[in-house]
């Protein structure tokens, strides 16, 4: 085979490899998923609960951190645990599918794998709140 003919063959091979129809590919590179970070902050009193709805454009992990629990009156940080969950809005509530009872931290406390659609973060008093507290939940999702 001449150098020119060899070049022509390799050209076709390279072009096909680089630009071939995706449906015909046998090896695919991982898709890049963009994650958003959001924060939900509000105040609950004894027995209280609040929820926050958000939309997942694609399926993936929702990672949740109860980042702050402070006195609503003084702003002083509290070590009491709150119940934090992820679910789907239903009626006037957010029944959590995954839930933990944790104190505030700066490391993620749980991950909920979810399909696309509307979900909610639920924060509730597990019986530890005696005076109004301000909470802040940070969560990341696709």
């Amino acid at each position: 085979m001449s150098a020119t003919r060899l070049a022509a063959v390799m050209v076709c091979t390279l072009v096909a490899a680089a630009c071939g129809d995706e449906a015909a590919e046998t090896v695919t590179s991982p898709e890049t998923v963009t994650f958003s970070t959001a924060q939900f902050s509000n105040v609950i009193g004894p027995g209280g609960r609040r929820f926050y709805s958000f939309t997942l454009e694609t399926s993936g992990p929702v990672t949740v951190t109860l980042a702050s629990v402070t006195s609503a009156d003084t702003g002083a940080p509290l070590t009491i645990p709150l119940r934090v969950g992820v679910g789907r809005p239903q009626g006037t509530e957010c029944p959590p599918a995954t839930v933990v009872t944790v104190p505030a931290a700066l490391q993620s406390q749980f991950t909920h794998l979810a399909g696309d659609g509307i979900y909610c973060i639920d924060v509730a008093d597990p019986g530890t709140v005696t005076t109004p507290v301000r909470f802040a939940v940070r969560f990341t999702h696709p």
């Binding site: 702050s68 402070t70 702003g75 700066l106 802040a136």
Partner: peptide, 12 residues
Amino acid sequence: IPRPDGSGCNLT
């Protein structure tokens, strides 16, 4: 964690 409105810092 910073307050989203930039008004301060909610303590952990």
